[in-house]
Nucleic acid binder design. Structure first.
Length: 745
RNA sequence: UGGGGAUUCGCCAAGCGGUAAGGCACCACGUUUUGGUCGUGGUAUUCAUAGGUUCGAAUCCUAUAUCCCCAUCCA
């Protein structure tokens, strides 16, 4: 769990605290038209996580309002995913289709209220009538139908008297709304299609915008959390719920940024293509970013949960690095999984001075993993090592076996190369070597220093297994389509050699193959005759990485923009403000370009002649309130009072901002606020000095840092003094005193 | 182009007027019979840019730039 809470939890907490809701109810509402992916995992973690954290509950609801794309097999996949991640939904799986009768009743109600109508325009006409982002749409002539006619038509739509596309039900909102979604959105369409749950009972189906908010409401959902692309739909969500005048409380929608990850696609449409056209072996192919894929590959639920926790929740579109996910699975498996040896690309070693065989008792966990367990490791004259672990002409920094460099066989003896045997083409076929009898692991008296220990397997005792190595599915950071697919994403090794201890285990187990990575016995294809292991993720490798070139970074390019010219009247104001009042250009500009601000400013000026101070506060503070609130709670006269207090030094600018906020919130008089709260500023150095001394005395560390050159800390001291004085200390005086004091400490 | 969002290190992300958190990645050193793990230290004088307000700005104001979403009878 991260220390700081995200913005959604902040909202939930506030809503609980204010009593808006007694209990938090969330929902995870996928459409069952594909397998859930890692992005769904994020959503699951958010919705179920928030419910868990605040002792509410989360519903699993299938948003099954489009009969043509949905299927029960996807419902099962969704249930599996949620369960596997370790969450439980409240009582049962909910379906939007269960609400079809209720939703229909609400539609009838809207029609009766005159807020919805049956439109008989065809699809193209509806599109045309909607207008564009810059031009208003126009309303259909059918919008004027009587309530009775609409009711009759809707009823007959439901009964199946019309063909697909003949009519639709629309909300009567505003065809010229700047938000395109609000231009009389469709509520129902006719679809003579078989629904996987309701069968042929219905031939009209509610649209997302109508069904979703009402489904949420029916379930008593409090926080309807969805992704950013639904921001524009929030207006409809609110419109439906408000116009229906439903009994409160009602849910509210909040949006977060969906998960984006490099080298990965997150689109169900693209997954469908990969699966259907055979680019991968099904939805659970270990290269797929589906939850089923990660599960099959060997990822643990804990690692995914941890990943979701680490990436955070915010509103900025972002692209998470897959390295973050890989870290999570390594981190989880490191302490959980036994170490074992497997040679992927074998090179035979004949140990000429070794006869017979022996069994070595080898621990399954390294010294830093606090777990018990060991296995018997057979050793004999002929062994296999990784081809990579021998080099005839090694580069500098190579720690493994070379003609002149001995190496330790992990858990066993130190080995020295004696002869390199090659075929006619010069390929190395085997190595003849010697072992050092007195170098046995744990009782080494040989005194030989070795740079590394390599993994190996006894040739006679090794078992052949199939190992499937996976690379990223896409070879570019931001993949678009098939052309970005990595042609080498799957590499199958038919004959990897594994030590005997590995195959005595059952499928559904994980190992670390030492120095290679983490592997998972494939839960489906693994058999006793042909054990199959999936590579989950490699170990961090700082040796091969050294060879790769660092990637270049691109700098941002700045583009100059243009500023709209001032109108004539604005120019008049601007000139007056700069020339007659002596305002700086920036402030004069802000005031002159905003008619509301300039008239407010002129009004304040009639009470007190302090053009600069007034301009500053109007252009900065008043401007903000005007943006936020439709009507101001304070008058021009009160602002002039506030400014007078600043000008006369009664209060500091800091206090003035505080007082201003009070005025904006409560509408109280500034003088009254200052008097009631005793906010008059303290400028007497004798009163301030003790406070400063105390702050200095209490923060010796920071004084030292300041002395060492961290001048940023100056603000810290001033801030502390101001805080201790209740904000009333005169900052200018405090600054002087603190500067002086710090010099002599 | 109208509307709605966003912009803090290579990648995520805290922060909401008073000392620029944390994680990943990266670098260095130490430990290590995994070139793993672990430990220690290093990585933003600066928060898209430019101005303004303030004793003090990532935080407030103004303008500009860039990116994302919306004109499916999909969700």
């Amino acid at each position: 769990m991260s220390e700081s809470k995200d913005f959604l939890r902040t909202i939930v907490e506030e809503d609980l605290k204010s009593g808006k809701y007694k209990e938090v109810i969330t929902r995870f509402p996928p459409e069952p038209n594909g397998f859930p992916h890692i992005g769904h995992a994020k959503s699951i973690c958010i919705n179920f996580g928030i419910a868990r954290d605040y002792h509410g509950h989360c519903n699993l609801r299938m948003d099954d309002t489009n009969p043509t794309t949905e299927d029960m097999k996807y419902v099962e996949a969704l249930k599996d995913a949620v369960t596997w991640l370790g969450f439980e939904w409240a009582d049962k799986v909910y379906f939007a289709s269960d609400y079809f009768p209720k939703i229909y009743d609400y539609a009838v109600q809207l029609v009766k209220m005159g807020k919805a109508y049956v439109d008989s325009l065809n699809e193209e006409e509806i599109r045309e009538y909607r207008g564009t982002v810059t031009t208003a749409g126009k309303r259909s002539k059918f919008a004027d139908r009587s309530i009775e006619e609409n009711l009759d038509l809707l009823e007959r739509m439901k009964k199946g008297e019309f063909k697909d596309g003949e009519h639709v039900l629309r909300a009567k909102i505003d065809m010229s709304a700047p938000n395109m979604k609000m231009r009389d959105p469709l509520l129902y369409r006719i679809r003579h299609a078989h629904h996987f749950r309701t069968g042929d009972e219905w031939c009209i189906y509610p649209m997302y915008d109508f069904a979703h908010c009402l489904s949420d409401y029916c379930e008593g959902v409090t926080h309807s959390i969805c992704t950013l692309e639904f921001e524009n739909n929030r207006d409809i969500y609110d419109w439906v719920l408000d116009e229906l005048e439903l009994k409160l409380p009602r849910p509210y929608q909040h949006e977060f940024a969906r998960l984006g990850m490099n080298y990965t696609v997150m689109s169900k449409r693209k997954f469908l293509e990969l699966v259907n056209d055979g680019y991968v072996n099904g939805w659970d192919d270990p290269r797929m970013p589906t939850i089923a894929g990660y599960k099959r590959r060997g990822y643990t639920a804990e690692s995914i949960l941890n990943f979701c926790d680490q990436i955070g929740i915010a509103k900025a579109n972002s692209m998470v690095d897959v390295a973050q996910l890989e870290f999570c699975i390594r981190d989880d498996l490191n302490t959980k999984v036994p170490r074992v040896m497997c040679v992927l690309d074998p090179l035979k070693i004949i140990i000429e001075n070794y006869e017979g065989e022996e069994e070595i008792d080898a621990s399954c966990y390294p010294h830093d993993v606090p777990k018990e367990g060991s296995r018997k490791l057979p050793f004999s004259k002929e062994i296999y090592i990784e081809r990579d672990d021998f080099m005839e002409n090694p580069p500098e920094g190579y720690f493994r076996l070379t003609p002149s460099q001995p190496v330790r066989l992990k858990h066993a003896y130190i080995l020295t190369c004696k002869e390199v045997v090659k075929d006619a083409n010069g390929n190395i076929i085997e190595i003849k070597a010697e072992y050092h009898p007195d170098s046995r692991s744990g009782s080494d008296t040989s005194g030989i220093k070795v740079k590394s220990a390599i993994h190996w397997v006894s040739a006679k005792h090794a078992k052949a297994v199939e190992v499937r190595l996976y690379e990223r599915l896409y070879s570019v950071e931001a993949p678009e389509g098939l052309e970005d697919l990595n042609p080498d994403s799957l590499h199958i090794i038919k004959n990897a050699f594994v030590e005997p201890a590995v195959i005595t285990q059952k499928p559904d187990v994980r190992f670390q193959f030492e120095r290679q990575g983490y592997f998972y016995a494939d839960p489906i294809d693994y058999t006793d005759d042909l054990p199959v292991f999936n590579k989950i993720v490699g170990l961090k490798d700082s040796w091969t990485k050294k060879a790769e070139a660092p990637k270049s970074q691109t700098k941002k390019v700045l583009v100059e923009g243009t500023v709209a010219p001032m109108s004539e009247e604005e120019q008049v104001f601007f000139d007056k403000y700069t020339l007659a009042f002596g305002l700086n250009n920036e402030i004069a500009n802000i005031l002159a370009r905003d008619a509301e601000l300039s008239s407010f400013y002129e009004e304040t000026l009639s009470f007190v002649n302090s053009p600069v101070s007034l301009a500053n506060i109007v252009a900065n503070e008043v401007a903000r309130e005007l943006k936020l609130e439709a009507t101001l709670k304070f008058s021009a006269k009160e602002i002039s009072e506030l400014v007078t207090m600043i000008d006369e030094g009664t209060i500091s600018n800091k206090i003035a901002k505080q007082v201003f906020e009070e005025m904006a919130k409560s509408g109280e008089n500034p003088t009254a606020i200052v008097e009631a709260q005793g906010l008059t500023q303290i400028s007497d150095p004798e009163k301030l000095k003790p406070i400063i001394d105390e702050v200095i005395a209490k923060n010796p560390d920071n004084v030292a840092k300041f002395k060492a050159g961290n001048t940023n800390l100056f603000g810290f001291f001033v801030g502390q003094v101001l805080k201790n004085s209740g904000g009333k200390a005169n900052p200018t005086v405090v600054n002087e005193l603190v500067t002086e004091k710090l010099k002599h400490v």
